[in-house]
Computed example of a mutant assay.
Amino acid sequence: MLGFRSCLSTARRVNLSFPTKMDTFMEAFEYAANRSKVLFGSGTIAKLPNILASRGLSRPLLLSTPQQLDQAQQVQKLLSGEAAGIFSEATMHTPVEVTDRAVEFAKSTKADSLVSIGGGSTIGLGKAIGIRTGLYHITIPTTYAGSEVTPILGETSDGLKTTRSDPSILPDAVIYDVDLTMTLPVGLSAYSGINAIAHAVEALYAQNTNPIIKMFAQEGVRSLAAALPEISKDPASQAARSSALYGAWLCGVCLGSVGMSIHHKLCHTLGGSFNLPHAETHTIVLPHALSYNASQVPHDMQRIASALGDDRGDAISGLNALLDKLPVKRGLRELGMREEDIDKAADIAMTKAYWNPRPTERDAIRELLRRAWAGEPARADL
């Protein structure tokens, strides 16, 4: 947790204004700090054995996707082979049937803890196992997703994705090692970074937001907006990689501290019901979701614009400009979504709607999805 002086310094860098008159009214709010222990730096993965030993743990189950099995094997070597085993079937949207297999594997190997290394898919699996078994969970993120510091679990079953929030879902410890992100492909870096920005954007105008989260959100967006174009130009820049990982942590804390709105509802719909890739979907939908809410939260739009470095104070243009600098797709049809599924997606999005600063209107939501499907630039006329 940042100290007061550090918070004050951060606030000044992101142009937060503090009241100068004693009669300025501060609205009431609630804030609870994230309980996860965070280790951030270069080479910090070397601290994993000590973390386990300090808890009296010696049989961690290592989790990864099939594509990141080699990283799980490297962790196994770091632990001198002292692990219950490796489960490398993590996949996007955390299917319940995969979790069930993992839980049974954890029981059969007598695992006493979990170590998940990878992006949102692996971290999600670790959360799903942890909430079912109570095993101590250490996560080692290798992307900028931010889900490692949220008490939120999204799971897919029978073609529908549902989410729940519970403090016990949070991993117990997070090891951020910038060295593990140095080979993250530029495209995946961009997509996961924009996914993280989406967490911060919606946290700014969440129903239960607060001044601390607003400060974290602005700093997180600022860090990522500066780092991602630099990573696209120079993937080996350790400074840019470090800034992006720092921003992703802040944005993840935002997601884990307050409620989300229409952007996340739409992305959960598109991912869970149409199996669209998580970070890519967030990247495409975000500017359109921002335009949907812009008229209702003008002050927060100014904060976003400032964090994005848009001199005109236009958050939508600022986000469009950032995306133009990155090697990312802009249309859901490029991800395989069919045009005839737009109406179905709009109907699903209208069910069990999340709180949103602007009421969810079916026709406007459908048009938002159509623009995102077609890959049109976002504009403020939804």
Rank of each mutant, 00 (worst) to 15 (best):
M1N: 12
G3M: 02
N15G: 07
P19K: 03
T20K: 15
T24N: 12
E30Q: 15
L39V: 10
R55H: 15
S58F: 09
L61E: 04
T65F: 05
D70K: 14
D70L: 07
K77H: 10
S80W: 08
E82H: 15
A84C: 10
A84M: 06
A84L: 10
I86L: 14
S88M: 05
P95D: 01
V96Q: 12
K107A: 06
A111V: 04
S113P: 02
S121M: 02
G134A: 07
L135I: 07
Y136E: 07
T139W: 11
I140Y: 05
P141W: 04
Y144T: 00
S147Q: 00
S157C: 03
S157L: 11
D158C: 10
D158V: 04
L160R: 14
K161S: 01
T163A: 04
R164V: 01
S165L: 05
S168V: 09
M182F: 04
L184M: 13
G187V: 07
A200T: 08
N208E: 10
N208P: 04
N210T: 03
N210A: 03
A225K: 11
L228K: 12
P229N: 12
E230S: 10
Y246F: 14
Y246A: 07
C254I: 04
S261M: 10
K265P: 02
L270R: 12
G271C: 03
L286A: 11
P298H: 07
P298D: 01
R303I: 00
S306R: 08
A315K: 10
D324H: 13
G331S: 12
L332H: 02
G336C: 07
D343K: 14
T351H: 09
Y354R: 15
R358E: 09
R362E: 12
R362C: 06
R366T: 08
A372S: 15
R379W: 11
R379M: 10
R379Q: 13
D381K: 14
D381C: 12
